[in-house]
């Protein structure tokens, strides 16, 4: 399987000044992201997950370590501005605050912004903008002014701007953190559609367990290190590890974990409420028949 992003032994330090000591934000971080996969990076505030995102987007330079994007080394002395520009054409990022990433006062103009920067011909931009707006379900708002949209809608406009540039990989840096539950659902649905239908590689940085549970793979960060990686099922079946890192597990996992501790034979890798209920019912029935 081809890797879109490969990170090896990445270290990053925020330099201190005056009495402020240096802060090591990333320490020996290594992982790979497969092409077309959906990876969630999970961690609480200060775990280094946003620093990681800014390194992947070439916004900050790591102290040491290597980052490969589509097999091309993007760290070190030999990286030119051309390379950086090229990498940014491949890897896009959607930020936390929807207000601070929209440039134009008309939705479609904003979606076009990235393509205009790439110097594409007008007809091509028009086609891509229409497709991108269709893709996030915002076509009928094309001529609207962004400040009148809801948070979720604004964030979908920002996503459309990234899609229109036809990136292979999109990083969502806590893109749902500032939204209400409704907006969060809209954005999550859009992200899943992009990954499953359009085949875009997705890296979702989040501290919501329920969102991370929907990924193919979860990378848990704590104190600038990778704590554990695996499928959501694998990662969440060890709740103690996550609790030690001040992280929660999905409510379903916590419930199942407690039941298991109480002696009920249940699986832990279930994140859907209905399935969870069915699993508990099954285990309870099994236990009843055993008792009889």
């Amino acid at each position: 399987m081809e890797n879109t992003i490969e990170v090896k032994n990445l270290c990053f330090t925020y330099e201190g000044y005056g009495d402020v000591p240096d802060v090591e934000a990333l320490h020996d971080v290594s992982f790979t992201v497969e092409k077309g996969s959906f990876t969630a990076i999970l961690g609480h505030n200060g775990s280094g997950k946003s620093t990681l995102a800014s390194v992947l987007c070439m916004l900050s330079e790591p102290a040491s370590g290597e980052v490969y994007i589509n097999g091309k080394l993007m760290t070190g002395e030999d990286v030119t501005d051309e390379d950086v520009f090229d990498a940014r054409r491949r890897v896009g990022m959607v930020f936390q605050n929807p207000d601070n990433q929209i440039v134009a006062s008309v939705v479609e103009e904003d979606v076009a912004f990235g393509c205009e920067n790439l110097g594409l011909p007008p007809a091509e931009i028009r086609r891509r903008v229409d497709d991108a707006l269709e893709c996030v379900g915002m076509r009928k708002y094309a001529r609207h002014s962004p400040h009148k949209l809801s948070g979720g809608q604004k964030q979908r406009v920002a996503i459309a701007g990234v899609i229109a540039m036809k990136r292979d990989c999109i990083i969502f840096d806590e893109s749902t953190a500032m939204l209400d539950p409704m907006g969060r659902r809209e954005v999550m649905e859009t992200i899943e559609y992009l990954n499953k239908v359009e085949g875009v590689t997705v890296i979702l940085i989040t501290h919501y367990m329920e969102e991370a549970a929907r990924a193919d793979r979860v990378i848990v960060m704590n104190g600038g290190r990778v704590l554990t990686t695996g499928t959501p099922g694998e990662v969440f079946s060890e709740p103690e590890l996550l609790w030690d890192a001040d992280l929660d597990v999905p409510q379903t996992t916590e419930l199942l974990y407690r039941m298991k501790k109480a002696g009920l034979d249940v699986r832990l890798d279930i994140f859907d409420f209905e399935e969870c209920a069915a699993e508990i019912a099954r285990a309870v029935k099994k236990r009843q028949s055993e008792v009889k």
Binding site: R88, G114, L120
Partner: peptide, 23 residues
């Protein structure tokens, strides 16, 4: 600051080589 970062991420490098959707 945030907007500048977002613009940079969207390949903005100033006016040179830029085209427009609506001509």
């Amino acid at each position: 600051g945030d907007l500048a970062t977002a613009m940079e991420c969207r390949c903005y490098t100033g006016g040179a080589g830029r085209t427009r959707m609506n001509v």
